[in-house]
């Protein structure tokens, strides 16, 4: 079923909401992008309203995919990855430190 067949009032997510969500997930976006995303999001979310047809009164939510058991393993010390291997991909480094721009307060 496509959204146009779903007989529901068109659902709308406006550009301001898109910009708000974008900031929450730390994505810089431009105004015109927010506009385009807003139309697409409205259509996609509207399609999801299809699930409202399903009565899920007593149905528990799925919380696992296979019948995974709780997994424990012995507490044994093992060598870990050499520090230099781990740090090789760090984009901004100072010695063995990872460098980032200011996190708290003013300079």
């Amino acid at each position: 079923m496509t959204p146009s067949e779903s007989n529901k009032p068109a659902f709308s997510i406006d550009a301001d909401m898109v910009k708000h969500v974008a900031f929450l997930v730390r994505l810089g976006i431009q105004d015109e992008e927010a506009q385009a995303f807003s139309h697409q999001f409205s259509a996609i979310i509207d399609y999801f309203h299809l699930l409202n047809e399903v009565d899920t009164g007593d149905v528990p939510p799925a919380c696992e995919t296979s019948n995974t058991r709780s997994v424990m393993r012995p507490d044994v010390i093992k060598p870990s990855m050499p520090r230099e291997d781990f740090l090789k991909n760090v984009p901004h480094r100072e010695g063995d430190y990872v460098q980032v721009p200011l996190v708290f307060g003013e300079e």
Binding site: V21, L24, L27, I29, F37, I44, I45
Partner: peptide, 12 residues
């Protein structure tokens, strides 16, 4: 980008 934003939206 679309999917990351939609994910945050449906979890909010």
């Amino acid at each position: 980008k679309r999917r990351i934003m939609l994910g945050a939206y449906v979890l909010s």
